[in-house]
Amino acid sequence: MEPAALLDCLTSLSCVVTQTTSGLIIGMLFFLVAAGLTLIFGVLGIVNFAHGAFYMVGAYLAYSAYQVTGSYLVAVLAGGFGAAILGVLFERFAIRRVYGENVLLQLLVCYGFVLVADDLVQIIWGSEYLSMGMPQAFRLPPVFIAGGIVPPFYIFIITVAAVFAAVLWFIIERTQYGRIIRATAVNPTMVSALGIPTPLIYLSVFALGMFLAGMAGGLAAPIRALTPGMGFSVLIVSFVVTVIGGMGSVTGALVASILIGLVRSYGSIGFPLFVDGLMYVMMGLVLVLKPNGLLGRQEASRP
């Protein structure tokens, strides 16, 4: 415990700038992964334990696309769309079979998929650590804002994630498609009775979630080493974020992601050894006191 160090930091503008941006970057990358997780739970009622695997696949596809084209944009899109296509196949041939089934059966399907995906990645890309490398455009010295250090690449990532958060919010809250999604989350039978093909809605939501996970993998590929099984540690944090924010709430995931990011960045100064413990304690407290999460909806009937 170093409360004095934390106080020092909070009273110094440069430290506040550095830690706040680092909290935002940690949080926003988690948000992109957690957003899909929470969306899929909210609409499909599926706890997608395979989410981390799609993040991994996205990162590897982005790596390969970058090797071929040298374009970071193409790489990120390849990660996102590649994961989305795989997601469509996974939904169509596996997840769809266990909608409304025992949660244990859903868990097993995901577990089996993760094992296969990790091994296939190892067979295809090898077990060596891979790193995409920083795209030329971002090989810039860090900028100083009020004495705080901020890498330009992170400004870019935070912006992209913020744009996606806004687009997601707009889609869900302001479009016809979003209204259908929300209706499906509450009462799929009624939506189906209105002549809307719910299986197609499920498929699209799942693909959207996987696109976000894959894109997050692609975005992070320049700064995170690629290894088979890399999705797991991301999955765990995403779960914590999702539970704290409220299972099914995208806005909740955003708030919780930023919260976790800031807790990590300031926590590493004030109570470095308890940063991870605090995440689990927060998750436990939320579950006990407010099981639906900070911004979760009341119990909705699941498909």
């Binding site: 550095t18 990358l29 995170r224 540690s233 590493s268």
Partner: peptide, 20 residues
């Protein structure tokens, strides 16, 4: 002394801590 966890995906908070 900073002690990140094994297989932690993000080291940003550790790096800024070291910079301080």
């Amino acid at each position: 002394q900073a002690w990140p966890k094994l297989f932690q995906p993000d080291y940003t908070e550790v790096i800024t801590r070291i910079l301080q």
